[in-house]
Design a protein around this nucleic acid. Structure first.
Lengths: 133, 133, 133, 133
DNA sequence: GTGGTCTAGACCACT
DNA sequence: GTGGTCTAGACCACC
């Protein structure tokens, strides 16, 4: 699992991390029992304060997506798939809709919007080394 | 021109207002020379502090989208269309792409994504009489 | 870097602060990577409201002169020197020209003007230990 | 006497107008007894609200620079020269000094400053049709 | 501790 | 009436 942060995004870093875990579980790129990177390791990797990672993991634990095994680490919880599917579907649909309505408000035609969408779908498969890995 | 704020959106109110003006100009629902609602009037309408509106207008003035005529009001600037087209295209494409990549990461198929997008496009036309009204 | 406000000046405090940063960078008294005083500290030092400092810093961030690192502070941006040189040269030349034309309009001879200018140049070196200190 | 307003200048329009009268009297381009343009005429010429002109004239009357002859118009007062010379010298010297110190702060050398000053002095004599007329 | 945004209410200059 | 800036004090997220 590879994590990436966009510091200019409207959603704060800790939420971006949590979303990435939720989506990975929903897409079955992570499965119950999988170990997550340690707070310190991930914090170093994405150049962020350990507290930020910690807050994301804590929130996911609260939701039942992760569980901590004391002295061992954080793991994807058994019921994570169900939880994340619901959560991911909701948030993804909502953000897609918001983005589309914005594009409409900005005067783009439906065709222009669909073209952009297809391009983005294609971009997801092609150029980058991982992210879906 | 009608303004609306979503207090639960990730972007702060002042930015939402600025975006709505940028998009309206890009979509030619507002044209150079048009007068904007006064700071106080709009603040009252969308239930926000006048400073918040003021900050949005000020930012747009800096970008060349609006012009203030002292003691008179704020007006869409002559070069606003060009500025807003560029800005709106950039931000809209970026947000659409982000939303689509998120959807991909959450495991939606391209077909599911396109279905959601078409639904959102349709939703824009349907429920309200006319966005341009 | 030392900041000073003239409450009787025609330009508002927040602009005075922004100008002082632009000029300091243009004169290379500040360099990319330098940390700026915190909003609260500077506000206390020059006896203004923190919002006033914040507005100045924000404007400079928009111009590419400063970068904020969340929870850490404001820093001079990499491209600040180029930006500030251009901006400072423009504004300084404009204000000097305006002042000189005013002096001409008020009937001062060129010689009187140059005498005043030389005196002011000298005054900059003399009374204070060092402007750059 | 020709008036000109810079809407982007830091000094408000009414003060700009007042300054232009003070300077014209100090430079003896206007003499005691000269008639000033009517409020409405000047307001139309410089595209400003009549109240703005009115406020400038009122302030100058208060200072003893102008005197109104009821039903006739505003005229340069007898003691205007003395008043304006003092006022103009003070304000001009102050603004010149401020501009020079700013230029120093922005890193210009004394030589660069003097070059700009000489250019501005020359510009005053050469290109424009009037202003000293 | 840091910056960022918001609310609330004030004063000023111009129309 | 208009916008523009300032003060004062609040909450949020991040370091």
């Amino acid at each position: 699992m590879h994590f990436e942060l966009d510091p200019r995004a409207p959603t704060p870093p800790s939420e971006q991390l949590a979303d990435q875990v939720r989506f990975a579980v929903a897409a079955e790129r992570m499965a119950p029992g999988d170990r997550l990177p340690s707070v310190r390791a991930l914090a170093a990797e994405v150049r962020v304060n350990p507290n930020t990672v910690s807050r994301a993991w804590r929130e996911l634990e609260r939701e039942g997506v992760l569980e901590s095994r004391r002295g061992d680490g954080m793991f994807v919880a058994a019921k994570a798939l169900a939880v994340c599917r619901k959560a991911a579907a909701r948030v993804v649909a909502e953000r897609l809709e918001r983005a589309v309505l914005e594009a409409c408000a900005a005067g783009l035609t439906n065709q222009e919007i669909e073209t952009l969408v297809r391009a983005a779908c294609a971009a997801d498969l092609a150029p980058r080394p991982r992210k879906s890995a």
